[in-house]
Computed example of a mutant assay.
Amino acid sequence: MAGYFAIFLVLLTIASGLIWLLDARLFAPKRREQVEQAVAAAGGKLPPETIERIAKEPWLAETARSIFPIIAIITVLRSFLFEPFQIPSGSMMPTLLVGDFILVQKFAYDVKDPVFRKTLYRNNTPSHGDIAVFKYPENPRLDYIKRIIGLPGDRVIYRDKQFFIQRACTEAHQGQCPGLEQVRYSFTAEGEFTQQGLPQRRYTEQFGDKQYDILLTAALPEQKGQYFRQAGTAIDEWLVPEGHYFAVGDNRDNSRDSRFFGFIEEDLMVGKAVFIWMSFEFSDNPDRVLPRWIPVGIRFERLGRIR
């Protein structure tokens, strides 16, 4: 089931469209007929203000006629093309920051209806390295955003803060199944970001043909005791089932992701994050007079495509 706002938009579109249609087909002709009768009764001479009063649309019909085209366009765009999201946490730093406003391409994956989220059209499926928005498996009312690491059939290992992937063996491999692949990264910088007062290290990770930055907090241990346990595998190893995906945050030590809640069903996929259209900067100064939700600046340098 979709979120409350999506359902509200659909209901508003249907209601305003029905009201507009009902008035146009049933009540508007009656108003025109009343005007003609009044003009005839007045001998063909009737003041314009009187005609306007008789022909005037009811407030509800006028409002429905005005908002229906706009609401309908918004509903179609938001449901099938692009949907805006705001980044609320630091789990995808440094790729996405708190205050980033992004566009999610809905048709990048399967196209779903906006209310019951049933697949209407089979399109593409997520790829390794995509930044995907999906419904949180433990509470589908919430939207989560993470990077896709494992596809159906992949074997995923996270050990010593390092991912290893054995890609799914398919008929295209002709018996030569892929081996275990280390997702390599190289050190970039340290001290730009912190977690719990601890400095974080920034690395550039290379996964197939995709390159992006991640954060690691060297002083924090892996939380293996909280990992999602899959029967028949090691505590830090997962085999992605068919029709499911494995996704993690770029801020590896500050992200609740598939390592903790498990796999993501393909029906929960919302779309692919493709563009930052606005980025607000907020202040953490405790002595600040204005509320913390009021931005102190705009990060224009962050606007553009997401990688």
Results as ranks from 00 to 15, higher is better:
Tyr4Met: 12
Pro84Ala: 00
His244Ser: 15
Thr188Asn: 07
Leu239Lys: 06
Gly3Pro: 13
Met93Glu: 15
Ser66Arg: 02
Ser255Asn: 04
Lys30His: 07
Arg159Asn: 00
Ala218Ile: 12
Lys56Cys: 06
Val10Thr: 07
Gly304Tyr: 10
Ser89Val: 13
Asp257Ala: 01
Phe68Ala: 01
Phe246Thr: 03
Ala72Leu: 10
Pro286Thr: 14
Ser186Asn: 04
Gly153Ala: 12
Gly225Met: 06
Ala2Asp: 10
Pro286Val: 10
Gln86Cys: 00
Glu237Val: 14
Val183Gln: 05
Arg288Tyr: 11
Arg159His: 00
Ile7Val: 12
Glu33Ser: 13
Gly304Val: 14
Gln195Cys: 05
Asn254His: 10
Phe228Val: 07
Arg202Ser: 06
Ala108Leu: 01
Asp113Ser: 10
Leu60Asn: 02
Asp257Pro: 01
Leu22Ile: 01
Arg122Gln: 11
Lys106Ala: 13
Trp293Gly: 02
Gly243Val: 02
Ile51Pro: 00
Ala38Gln: 01
Asp209Phe: 02
Leu46Ser: 08
Gln223Phe: 03
Met278Ile: 07
Gly3Asn: 12
Phe300Cys: 06
Phe260Gln: 10
Arg184Ser: 14
Ala247Gln: 10
Cys169Ser: 06
Glu192Val: 14
Asn254Glu: 02
Ser279Pro: 02
Thr194Phe: 08
Leu18Thr: 00
Glu265Phe: 06
Ile264Thr: 07
Asp284Ile: 10
Leu46Trp: 13
Gly225Val: 08
Ala234Glu: 13
Thr119Arg: 12
Met269Asn: 13
Glu181Pro: 00
Pro221Met: 01
Val274Gly: 06
Ser91Tyr: 05
Leu9Asp: 08
Ser283Arg: 00
Trp20Lys: 00
Leu46Glu: 14
Tyr245Glu: 07
Gln174Thr: 09
Val10Trp: 11
Leu180Arg: 11
Ile131Gln: 01
Ile74Asp: 07
Phe163Asp: 07
Leu77Asp: 04
Gly271Gln: 08
Arg302Phe: 00
Glu266Arg: 03
Arg299Val: 13
Lys56Trp: 07
Ile149Leu: 12
Arg147Ile: 03
Glu52Ala: 15
Val270Lys: 09
Pro94Lys: 05
Arg31Asn: 07
Ser127Leu: 10
Gln182Ser: 09
Phe80Tyr: 15
Ser258Glu: 09
Leu46Phe: 06
Tyr203Thr: 04
Arg307Cys: 05
Arg299Ile: 09
Ala64Arg: 02
Pro199Val: 10
Glu265Leu: 02
Trp238Met: 05
